[in-house]
Amino acid sequence: MSEKHDEPTICPWCQTEIVWDEEIGPESHCPHCENELSNYRTVQFGSELDDEEMDEEEELEDVDSWTDTGRDLSDLRPYNRDQLALEETMARILDEQLEAPECPTCREFMMEAGTQIVTQEQFQPRTPEALGEPVVSAPFQLQLYVCPSCFHAQNRLSVKDQERLVRLLTKAADLED
């Protein structure tokens, strides 16, 4: 395995020069882009055209393929228009919200869907010894947030109840001093 590679090997996918380890030998995958090196094949059409002419010709062929099937480029517009309308509506909704948490699943901003009021019949509070009273006492409100991309839903304590919890924790800390 002491074969020496005189000419550099270039990955056909990422165009990076690959330096072989003499002890291990040739790589089957590019160490940079992880693509397989042995099954790369190219097909060339119109090799007499330069790159600019080929790009223009490919664009014309794409347009021709749409018009040959009885479609026109307006068939592509509804998706783009719908996508833009969706994004615009989402932006307006998010601008109105006090908070816009990030979805833990897909990292999109979540929409506030509504408020749930939790009553004493629906909730059994826990009273930590360190506080001497429940962390949250009923009735309290939960804000429901929904992700418009993956539809993950999550609850968050309402702002008013968040402030009440902070006051409770602060009061408990003052009592220890």
Rank of each mutant, 00 (worst) to 15 (best):
E133T: 14
E121H: 07
Y145L: 03
F123D: 02
V136L: 14
C147M: 02
Q143A: 01
S137W: 09
E129Y: 12
C150H: 03
F140A: 00
A130W: 14
P139E: 02
Q143P: 05
T115S: 04
P128A: 01
L165G: 00
I117H: 04
L144H: 05
A138V: 05
R164Y: 07
T119N: 05
Q116T: 15
E129K: 06
F151S: 12
V135C: 11
C150Q: 03
L165W: 11
S158R: 02
L131T: 08
R164K: 15
E163I: 08
T115Q: 13
Q124W: 15
Q120M: 10
L131W: 09
G132K: 11
Q141D: 10
L168V: 09
V135I: 13
V166C: 01
Q162N: 07
C147E: 00
Q116N: 12
A153I: 11
R167W: 14
P134N: 06
V159C: 03
R126M: 13
V136Q: 07
K160H: 15
A138M: 06
K160P: 06
L131F: 10
L142G: 00
P139L: 03
V136F: 11
V166A: 03
S149Q: 14
Y145Q: 01
V136W: 07
C147I: 05
Q143M: 14
Q124D: 11
